[in-house]
Design a protein around this nucleic acid. Structure first.
Lengths: 193, 193, 193, 193
DNA sequence: TATGAATGAGTTTTCATTCAT
DNA sequence: TATGAATGAAAACTCATTCAT
């Protein structure tokens, strides 16, 4: 797996060949095929690892902060997410391209599913009575991922900037309040949002 | 270009070969190569078309609504965006994978740049005095794209649901207010953004 | 033909394509095919021109000097040969590669044939009674061509050096004397050389 | 390498394709590419082999005869050269065309360089005090090659004729004496060579 | 007489995968 | 369990030549 990552980093996804991974790992192709049934499984293993990593870290923080005001939980989770991506920058970057590849949807779906569950719990705890909380959780996750993806693609060095975390917190908090605020301030301008 | 799209839809990006596109187009490979210098240019042409399409539609609406309250502009632009993607669903889906491919970043960057400019103008008009308006525009665009991408990936049929538009409007409006609201209502709860 | 030469000079023989020659000539491929039946004929025309050129120049000089002492005829012919190659350096260099190509032997054979005839006449006039004069003429021509070819290949700028002409004259004169000298100096060491 | 040679002999250089060589060798293209990195290297390997062969044979004879009278050394080397070409006739013929191909000059230059060194040593030993011995060696080699090339091209069967060897010896001996003789017989007709 | 779009066989090269050792 | 040579289908791209206009 380390070899796969290195090849991905050095040569890119298009240049990833089983031979290259094998020689990078210091074994023969034959041996490689004894541990990974085919080429795709090499990258899949990396994806699984990546999701586990993210989920472990972010999930742990979420567990700690559950019930806290949305601003706090959001900030904690977002900073953990960013920190984890930063600490595994090579992996994060390397998986950018393979992630979009068709056929691996099940994996992503499953990984997302877990994160949705956690996020939903957090949101419900912070905004009791919020409607469609699962949908809200999905919006939160996918919007945050979208922003991070764009940053990584266009200005990777800003991944560790203070500003990015602030923006993401504003995004999430603003959204959740807008979504759930109605429940708390019934006189407000519902309709049109 | 139509042939490229059809092959992309039917066989996927990995299976896209010059031969297949040619035969789908009903011409010989040689002829294909007289109009497109290499394989990549096939997909690039599609990307360019796609971006032009989106920008034309969304840009036009933005021009109409500039200066209107953020709720209105946001809804108008988002509904146009969704409608355009829906009307060109095959194209939208087909480009999902190739879009992440490394090496075509310049194109995406440029397309994004234009949209950022428009969005920024709209935001500034609706929320005069907002700080870091370009950054805000980028956050808005990438978060909306992120949500749409996730929906397309996991539940494509919801692309035309009323709920999706509502969620996106909430996301954008919530964020912008959270970001810029302070300026207009100094007594409000700044902190946390 | 000028276009063929230019393409040959600029792009080399491997890169010579009918399209390139046509566009260099400012006409369409179709038109090109109305004057030259196929690709090979493009280069053949150039070869024919080249041989005619050489033969015209060298032949003219030979006619003038026929009967003169071998040193003089040899020098005159060699200097003319070198001067002609120098004056048509692009052509000379451009044809180096195509000249070796199989299938054009007839042409070369014919061109050589004419030159052999002239050279033979010259040698017989200078060294009356020489045996196997045709063979001698062939040796003279091919050895001179061999030396020039090597110079062009390895040190093209020496093509105009005084030294080269001197060497070639020594080569030819030495050979002819060695071959024919016996007849004139019967006491010499004939046998074995 | 044997397969390359056979294809070269049977189909000519223009028709030499990796597929053909592979099938002639009784292996798949893939296997071929595991031993030769690209098409060109197939022919290069043959050239290297050819030069090594010639140099080994001719060099060995030269070492034996060094210091002997020029007539003897010349004859020994020339006969060895001719015998070697004859014994490897297919190779000799097959390489005629590829040898002129641009881009492989370095190889030829190097091979020639070695032979020049040997020839030069031989000439200096036989004709002490000769001027410009390197130049003389180059003239000797390239003229001999020129004559042999012409014979091979136009009358290949004469390669083994007694007459050819005699002619070449006359050429070399005549030249060297003409060039260097002056030093030993100061009264002779220097001037004009 | 000129044009140049269309053709498609042919070329080089790659690489996932197998399997005998 | 490891090896790595062998495989060969598949891919991108080229270019001489034709022929309808």
């Amino acid at each position: 797996m380390a070899a796969t990552l290195q090849v991905l980093v050095r040569d890119g996804y298009q240049k990833l060949t089983t031979t290259r991974v094998a020689e990078r790992a210091g074994v023969s192709v034959g041996t490689l095929y004894q541990y990974f049934p085919d080429k795709r499984s090499l990258v899949t293993a990396l994806k699984v690892h990546y999701f586990e990593l993210l989920f472990r870290e972010v999930g742990a923080v979420a567990a700690t902060k559950i019930g806290a005001p949305i601003e706090l939980v959001a900030r904690a989770m977002i900073e953990t997410l960013l920190a984890t991506k930063r600490k595994n920058l090579a992996l994060t970057l390397a998986l950018r391209e393979p992630m979009a590849e068709l056929g691996g949807e099940a994996l992503v779906r499953e990984a997302t599913g877990q994160l949705v569950a956690v996020t939903r719990a957090v949101i419900e705890a912070s905004m009791p009575g919020i409607r469609e909380s699962e949908q809200a959780a999905r919006v939160v996750i996918s919007s945050v991922e979208g922003v991070i993806a764009a940053v990584i693609q266009e200005r990777p060095q800003e991944l560790s900037s203070r500003a990015l975390a602030d923006e993401l917190v504003a995004l999430v908090v603003g959204y959740v309040k807008q979504r759930g605020g109605a429940a708390r301030h019934p006189r407000s301008q519902r309709r049109g949002d």
